[in-house]
C-alpha cells in the first residue's frame, strides 16, 4: 500500500492547498445533494403505511445521527494518530470537527424527540439509541470544554487527543450497555451491508441526503481546519505568502 498520502497529511502546507481545492467543492456538492435528498424525501417519497407522513423526519434524523457517530469515530482515530505519530494535523482535525459533531448530535436529539412525539406519544423516551446519542452529545461537549479550558496549545492538543481516544474506546461499550439496558427503539433502518428493508423510493432520498450531509460536513471541516492551520502556522513563510497573495 502506498502511504505517501498519509505522510503528506503531516504537512500543513500541503493540506491547506489540497483543502483549498476540495473544501468548496465538497460543501457545494454536499449542499446540492442534501437539498435534493430532503425535497425528494419530504415531498415525493411515499408515506409510511404505519407512521404516515411523520416518518419523513427520517431524512434529517438518520443522516445526522449517523454523521454524529462518524465524526466521533474520526476524532478518536485522529486522537490515536496525534498521540502515536504526533501528526500536526490530527489535533487540528479534532478541534475543527468537534463542534460540527456536537451540532449533529444535538440535531439528532431534537429531531428524534420531534419524531418521538407522533410515534410514541412523548417527546422523550429513555430508549437505548436516544440515550446513547445523549451520551455522545455529552462526550462532544467534554472535548469542546477541555479544548476551551486549556490555554497552552501543546497541552490542549494532547488533552483533546486523550479525551477523544478514551471516548472512542468507551463508545461501543456505552452503546452496548445502553442497548442491553433497554431496547424500545425500532431496529436500525439504514445499513449499508444489508439489503434495505424499506422500498427503493424511500431509501434513495435517504442515501442522497446522507451522502450530501457527509460531503457538506467534510467540506465544512476542511474550511475550519484551513483556518486553524493558518492561525497555527502564522509564522511560516508559506502562510505569509498565502495571505499576501490571496488575502484572508
Amino acid at each position: 500500500m502506498n502511504w505517501t498520502w498519509f505522510h503528506k497529511l503531516g504537512s500543513p502546507k500541503w493540506f491547506y492547498q489540497w483543502a483549498s481545492n476540495w473544501g468548496g467543492r465538497c460543501v457545494y456538492l454536499g449542499l446540492a445533494l442534501l437539498v435534493i435528498g430532503i425535497i425528494w424525501g419530504l415531498g415525493f417519497a411515499p408515506a409510511d403505511y404505519q407512521q404516515g407522513n411523520s416518518f419523513r423526519i427520517i431524512y434529517i434524523h438518520v443522516p445526522v445521527a449517523v454523521l454524529a457517530q462518524s465524526c466521533y469515530l474520526g476524532m478518536g482515530i485522529a486522537g490515536f494518530v496525534a498521540l502515536v505519530w504526533q501528526m500536526k494535523l490530527a489535533p487540528v482535525f479534532i478541534k475543527s470537527v468537534a463542534p460540527v459533531g456536537a451540532v449533529m448530535a444535538f440535531i439528532a436529539l431534537v429531531s428524534g424527540a420531534i419524531w418521538g412525539k407522533p410515534t410514541w406519544g412523548t417527546w422523550w423516551v429513555w430508549d437505548a439509541r436516544l440515550t446513547s446519542v445523549l451520551v455522545l452529545f455529552l462526550l462532544y461537549m467534554g472535548v469542546i470544554a477541555i479544548q476551551n479550558a486549556i490555554d497552552d496549545q501543546v497541552f490542549a492538543d494532547k488533552a483533546v487527543a486523550v479525551v477523544s481516544l478514551v471516548g472512542v474506546i468507551n463508545l461501543p461499550i456505552i452503546k452496548y450497555s445502553v442497548e442491553w439496558w433497554n431496547t424500545l427503539h425500532q431496529p436500525a433502518t439504514f445499513k449499508l451491508t444489508e439489503k434495505p428493508s424499506m422500498p427503493m423510493e424511500m431509501w434513495l432520498p435517504l442515501l442522497f441526503s446522507a451522502l450530501g450531509l457527509y460531503l457538506f460536513a467534510a467540506g465544512l471541516a476542511m474550511w475550519r481546519m484551513q483556518n486553524e492551520v493558518l492561525v497555527r502556522e502564522r509564522k511560516a513563510s508559506w502562510v505569509k505568502k498565502e495571505v499576501l497573495e490571496h488575502g484572508v
Binding site: V135, L138, L139, M141, G142, A145, I146, A149, I150, F155, A159, V162, V163, V166, G167, N170, I173, I174, Y176, S177, V178, W180, W181
Partner: peptide, 29 residues
C-alpha cells in the same frame, strides 16, 4: 488532565461521568 487547571473539578465531572455509564448499568443490572 485537569490537575493543572484552576477550575478543573467541574470539567473533570463532565469528562468522566459519561464514561461511568456502562459500569453503573451493568452493576445495577
Amino acid at each position: 488532565l485537569t490537575v493543572s487547571l484552576r477550575r478543573g473539578a467541574v470539567l473533570m465531572l463532565l469528562l468522566i461521568l459519561p464514561l461511568y455509564i456502562p459500569v453503573i448499568v451493568f452493576a445495577t443490572g
